[in-house]
Design a protein around this nucleic acid. Structure first.
Lengths: 335, 335
DNA sequence: CAGCCACGTGAAAACGTTTTCAAATCCGTT
DNA sequence: AACGGATTTGAAAACGTTTTCACGTGGCTG
């Protein structure tokens, strides 16, 4: 039989209420407090969090829903979230959706059943659209990806302009024919595409775009196919770390060296991007800060439920490395 | 006000017990079942998991305690665990300890308070020792790292012999002076050291060993220091992915190329090890399988509490890449 | 046709806490 | 000396479920 608050009370010679007050730092005389604490030690009492939650209506639990924790962006994010949760004496329940709306829906429902304190969530584009019509009894803070305008708090970078910065850099290095590969499941990839397209237009260049499942395999296959078909862009840019990995693999497999044969750039400054060849030029996001900001937003919204919806936009940073360097001009015409 | 089972019952014109039975697939006539299901839809009812857990004494929750989710080994592990949990309709609560025993203790206590169904746990060496004396009311399965012999179920690879395989390979390539860097927080690193030492002895070679905090920074600093002091081993092997990263960085920073100037090898086949230079020779662990096996073990132990303690040992695999290749023999004497 | 069993159902207890409420005690003030 | 207020305590209700138990109904069996 598991020992409960009543057993502690009996041993200490007080009422259960008093034990509860000791646990919750309520008003108790030092005398009784000591007795109770001794009894707790003696009985090896461990509070039952389910009971506590049921009665107090506070779960002290943060939900975290991402597509795949193995994506280093989400790995770092989750670590930051967990740290903040630890600091606030809360637990984190982790959910991977694999960009699968059915799994997403299942987890969203679970979050309501858990009566979580707050949710940090990177929604699929399809679910994000539906998000405006859904009711939640807890704060929902979107990260990395946005929902319907103004429907939820969110923490992102300025994706369109970051993509623009990347394009500007590539063009500045003399690259003209710039292929863009973008994920097809997130609003974020869409915004990065928009930024790419706008920048290309600004420079008077034609775009070349493909939306793909955001996986290394998809990117690798796509570039391999194009190279086999004889295409040879000056540069390729991609909208996230997984695509960047596939891109690099494809180039390597085709025997292309960067930047000699093809320039490469993308989003997410993952560990390996610095180590590979001349280093890969990337947009670095302040991932841990995004996580912390999201937690802050959860807490603020709890404190001030009527606060206006808030979108926190953090600065991203261009990390220039060898992969995007200028090539010696060949005889090939500029267009 | 939140809608409860009673509200559903009232709407459906049945008793709360019947609603509960519908929810739990209990024996209910089709007639009433339909009414109840309609009422559930109408009221937007969501079960309260805290209440359910309190009454049923089942939390359907798996605890996962690792040192740092950002270590790709644990990332992949956690993904496998989460997948298995999803399949069994369970949640996973994720905890990072940063190899900090205090944080570990805190999380272990939390797990008891959560009354979790089972725990998957990679303990620090210091906590692992204490583990034999601790009582848990749920199955504890150790992963990657072991506890006191036979005290808990565990899933690992054969660390000593895997390290031996790595040494044999390096020696086979002609390397003689092999520096070994090992983490100082896990039993696993210790076993890998033992395997290294045994293999070196078998080959009649002197060992050169250092135990470090298992971080990239520590490994990088250590090798940099040694190189600066004029040391130049034939090869360096390390006991995990983080150390491998630091090792590679240090070599690179010192302008050493692998395998020309120094051979490099280690544990954990992370994404980047294949991409870097000639590729890094590593021992690859079946990480996802470790996670799945751990979950299986949790379930088996729940089914058969008296089952003998079980240690599952999975096969690791040597992945040979360029970084360990033989060097052209120089005039330097073999010893 | 009597008896039995299987089945579906509801009333009420139970899970382990926190919280409300009222009672009791103590202190200082008038 | 009496009163008011603050402080500490305990009894009991409440949180939202599942589970136990007993009851009623209907179909079978003998």
């Amino acid at each position: 039989m598991t020992v409960g608050i009543k057993d502690v009370a009996r041993v200490a010679g007080v009422s259960p209420a008093t034990v509860s007050r000791v646990l919750g730092n309520g008003p108790v005389s030092d005398d009784l407090r000591q007795k109770v604490e001794a009894a707790i030690k003696a009985t090896q009492y461990r509070p039952n969090l389910a009971a506590r939650r049921l009665r107090s209506q506070h779960s002290r639990t943060i939900g975290l829903i991402v597509s795949d924790i193995r994506n280093p962006f989400f790995t770092t994010l989750s670590r930051a979230v967990e740290d903040a949760a630890y600091g606030a004496d809360m637990r984190v329940v982790l959910c991977n959706t694999d960009e699968n709306p059915a799994r997403e829906a299942m987890y969203l429902r679970m979050m309501q059943e858990e009566r979580i304190t707050g949710l940090i969530y990177a929604p699929t584009r399809t679910t994000a659209e539906r998000l405006g019509r859904m009711e939640f009894s807890f704060p929902v803070v979107l990260v990395d990806r946005m929902g319907p305008a103004g429907a939820h708090d969110a923490v992102t970078i300025d994706n369109a302009s970051a993509a623009g910065v990347l394009v500007d850099h590539l063009v500045g290095q003399g690259h003209r024919r710039i292929l863009g590969l973008f994920g097809n499941t997130s609003s974020t990839a869409e915004l990065r595409h928009d930024g790419y397209a706008a920048a290309m237009a600004r420079h008077g260049l034609d775009t070349d775009v493909r939306f793909l499942p955001p996986t290394a395999e998809a990117a690798e296959a796509e570039l391999t196919r194009r190279l086999a078909a004889g295409a040879r862009p000056d540069a390729v840019m991609v909208s996230n770390g997984l695509l960047l990995l596939g891109l690099y693999r494809a180039a390597r497999r085709a025997g292309l060296e960067s930047p000699r044969d093809i320039a490469i750039a993308g989003f997410d400054n993952e560990t390996w991007t610095e180590l590979v060849g001349p280093g890969l030029t990337v947009i670095e996001q302040p991932v841990a800060e995004i996580g912390r900001a999201a937690m802050d937003l959860v807490f603020e919204r709890l404190r001030t439920p009527d606060m206006a919806r808030r979108q926190v936009v953090l600065a991203a940073r261009l990390v220039v490395r060898g992969s995007s360097a200028a090539r010696e001009r060949t005889a090939r015409p500029a267009i």
